[in-house]
């Protein structure tokens, strides 16, 4: 058979578009998308917020973790339409200016808690929410807190250090970490 190109008018499966409005990082954003559009795809491809990454699309790796009303959620397991009632925070909302890092971001930099950086946004959002609830974790608690996110590069050790360092930075202390 030969390559078939072009789409016929009135073809099967034309999708209904819904107008979806989300508050993302404090700003109201709207796009017309099908009901099945995942929040992860909506953020990345419709809104251009590509900091949220997709590593598995089945809820295991945590790379797509965003905050919904401050709570970590897997954006690959949520439809964009159903996120409408919530305030969405992505990694860009934690600080989008490379020259002005937030405390968790700074801690990751100081502790070399990222290599390829693909898993990193999911860790940053997860840790941000965690430290809201647990501002002064022990090392074991810090390890437990990040145990729902996969990283293939770092072996997690420096991420654990970064959680502890971020807690310090949030409390306003700034002594240099022991690398």
């Amino acid at each position: 058979m030969s390559g078939q190109a072009g789409s016929a008018a009135g073809a099967p499966g034309a999708e209904e578009l819904l107008e979806v409005t989300l508050r993302v990082n404090g700003v109201s954003r709207t796009a017309g998308v099908p009901a099945r559009r995942l929040l992860s795809d909506f953020l990345r491809h419709d809104l251009g917020l590509t900091g949220t990454h997709v590593g598995c699309e089945h809820g295991v790796c945590g790379a797509c973790t965003v905050l919904l009303d401050g709570e970590p959620a897997r954006a690959c397991l949520v439809f964009a339409v159903s996120a409408q009632p919530h305030e969405v925070t992505t990694v860009e909302g934690l600080g989008s200016d490379p020259g002005a890092l937030g405390p968790v971001q700074r801690a990751f930099l100081e502790c070399h808690a990222l290599q390829c950086g693909f898993c990193t946004p999911g860790f940053l959002t997860t840790v941000t929410a965690y430290l809201e609830d647990t501002p002064d974790p022990t090392e074991a608690e810090a390890r437990e807190a990040i145990s729902g996110n996969l990283c293939r590069c770092t072996g997690y050790q420096n991420i654990v250090s970064a959680v502890l360092r971020a807690a310090e930075l949030r409390r306003g202390a700034t002594p240099e970490p022991t690398p």
């Binding site: 917020l49 590509t50 860009e92 989008s96 490379p98 930099l109 950086g117 940053l124």
Partner: peptide
Amino acid sequence: DPRLLTGNGRF
């Protein structure tokens, strides 16, 4: 890192 930490990586 500053790029990768702020959603400014480009994969």
